[in-house]
Design a protein around this nucleic acid. Structure first.
Lengths: 127, 127
DNA sequence: TCCATTGTTCGTATTGTCAGAACAACGGAA
DNA sequence: TTCCGTTGTTCTGACAATACGAACAATGGA
């Protein structure tokens, strides 16, 4: 099995982090992992907001989060244990992750989470 | 001329903001606008980091920033006056913009800005 | 050995992005 | 007024990124 790639902390970029977290599915995954004490597997996320996410898509999302430096993945038998790299990132970009997670909390609260974030409609694209 | 579209504050999403600012050219534009007292026109950015940016690409980037709710554009004769919406966004997502701008400062300082951010290489994609 | 489970890779359709060319809008000069 | 330079937008084709079903690889238990 190919070993997993994780960028070293100094290779982590703001662009990479923002891009990774600009996807509703990925940010949901990341928030869950970041807020959980024990590691989470990919199969924990086969549904995200009552919506099923295909395995292959999930795998890509996890890869994106790993390569952005947001999570760390560790093969554990047949499954993958994912933990967040929040503490590291906090050292490099203080306050960044917290601000993003907090903003998401605000947004989820405000909209009641009802149908918000249908992917690639950033509140515009009409008119 | 078609009137410009600006999302109202409550339609501004975190995903939209993060996506808009995950592009090195757009974030450079935004930081410049946000840090400037007087409005800036599109033509102020025909070069970004010693690199020329085509007009049409610039126009698209400004549109993306507008539709994400990050800037406000106002036609003033033949040119467009762009101002940031930082203050509004700060009310909705406290600390978010500041954390992102600060992270960019850290990154620019650390790497000496040398060849960093060549677009679409989020520190990974090798191995 | 067989098989169920977990995750990755491959192939293809869809979608988004870049940038040159043509265009539209405005303002000044003749 | 007409002409023209400046500024920004739209159109279009090439290219890159993404989604997801299907096939595959790896592991561990029966």
């Amino acid at each position: 099995m190919k070993p997993l790639f994780h960028p070293s902390l100094e290779d982590v970029t703001v662009e990479g982090i923002l891009h990774a977290l600009s996807d509703p599915v990925r940010v949901a995954i990341f928030i869950e992992i970041a807020g959980s004490a024990c590691p989470r597997t990919c199969s924990n996320f086969q549904q995200i907001r009552e919506k099923p996410v295909p395995k292959s898509t999930l795998s890509q999302h996890f890869k994106a989060l790993r390569e952005a430096g947001l999570i760390r993945g560790e093969r554990q038998g047949v499954e993958m244990h994912n933990t967040s790299r929040c503490a590291e990132i906090e050292r490099r970009f203080p306050g960044l992750i917290e601000a993003i997670i907090n903003a998401h909390r605000v947004q989820a609260k405000g909209s009641g989470c009802a149908g918000a974030a249908t992917k690639r409609r950033p509140a515009a694209a009409r008119a």
